[in-house]
């Protein structure tokens, strides 16, 4: 299988990689670029653990061919904090115990940030539907919803 040479931007940095045409963006992030924050929970778009932003849209990186990302802007969990300064959502997730095992956390944080950028003052129901594609098996979602609300309130007040 002849490989593709792709130039893209990941978390604001230029990135180049070689990939097989059937490799996904998730494969490349994890296996070629060492960015293992996005997780493969299903590989079929059902769990959301691999969520990233692609050209400003929330997507499952398991449902994107790496070859499609030529010239694209990709943002992953690794780019969410600003240096040692955690994003409000990240900090509040720790403070509000919104994670247990933590495997779904990167995907949920990326998705929650996308929500708050679009809707800074969501209702609980809006959060729950927005995050319906992010499975969490540990928390029952309760503390996740509360943490997103708390972070949203804090972000609105700044």
């Amino acid at each position: 299988m002849k490989k593709l040479h792709i130039s893209t931007s990941i978390n604001g940095d230029e990135a180049q990689f070689i990939c097989a045409p059937d490799e996904t963006l998730l494969d490349v992030l994890r296996d070629h670029l060492g960015l293992t924050g996005a997780k493969e929970g299903c590989g079929t778009g059902d769990c959301g653990a691999c969520s990233v932003m692609l050209n400003g849209r929330l997507v499952c990186s398991c449902l994107v061919l790496a070859g499609e990302t030529e010239g694209a802007e990709v943002e992953t969990i690794e780019g969410m904090a600003n240096g040692d300064d955690l994003h409000t959502l990240q900090r509040v997730f720790i403070e509000k115990a919104a994670l247990q095992c933590g495997i779904c956390t990167p995907g949920i944080l990326v998705a929650a940030r996308a929500l708050l950028e679009k809707n800074p003052d969501p209702t609980d129901t809006e959060i729950r539907y927005w995050l319906a594609g992010n499975l969490c098996r540990c928390t029952g979602y309760d503390k996740i919803i509360k943490a997103v609300q708390a972070a949203a309130a804090e972000m609105r007040s700044v």
Binding site: A38, E40, L86, Q90, I94, L99, P106, L109
Partner: peptide, 20 residues
């Protein structure tokens, strides 16, 4: 309700799971 020690690793994607 103290902060968990593995929190930062898990909200930044640094934590190493089985496949990582």
């Amino acid at each position: 309700r103290v902060l968990r020690p593995d929190g930062i690793d898990k909200v930044t994607g640094k934590a190493m799971y089985g496949a990582d």
